[in-house]
Amino acid sequence: MQGESSHAFGLAHHFDSFDQQREASYLGMWVFLVTEIMFFGGLFTAYVVYRSGQGAAFAIGSHELDIVLGSINTAVLIGSSLTMALAVWAAQTGRRKAIVAFILATILLGGLFLGIKVVEYSAKFEHHLVPGPNFHWQGPEAPGVEMFFNLYFLMTGLHAAHMVIGIGILLVVAILAWRGSFSPENHNLVEGIGLYWHFVDIVWIFLFPLLYLLGRNIQV
């Protein structure tokens, strides 16, 4: 019988080998990301349904978004994915300090993204473009424009919530990395949060064109 004493450090009691533990951990993360795709998928469906009926209003809405800030944020987020990938590389090659440095860079870029998002949100608030009782739109297609902003805030808001959770987990992983909890054989947590971070990045890659770019060529 394999007692726990015969187990290597960092190998959970119910796994036979690091390989098995790693494969389970990755598969688990991928399955989780599938659930995330379905979660966001509901919102994307709502977007497609309403856009197909109210294309003109959605075009008007997209003109109200700040394309400069949106583009900067896209670049910031892609940059954060780069630093995240480098952190994973550092973990694979056993560079303890590099893991911490790259994760902190990722956190910094993620924070910058959220900061820019706050600037964008507060501008919408000042212009009475936040849906609800205080929403005011003088131009045409008012209900459709409000629907556009419903979806804008729900989709980017849900995305931002995922960023906040991601940053929280990254902080924990950074502390663990600093303490030397990861080795080239056993760094599943870094790989896992890396996958998660890239996923959140990819969601934005879809959100940005759908909300900021589509319909921008139409004169309103």
Partner: peptide
């Protein structure tokens, strides 16, 4: 399950924030 989760979240948002995702009076379906 994630799909019903987002549907429930939208109903809650509609009730709490008085927005019209599913309310035909506000352009929803």
């Amino acid at each position: 399950t994630p799909v019903v989760a987002i549907a429930i979240l939208l109903v809650a948002a509609e009730r709490l924030l008085h927005i019209g995702i599913f309310d035909p009076a506000l352009g929803g379906d």
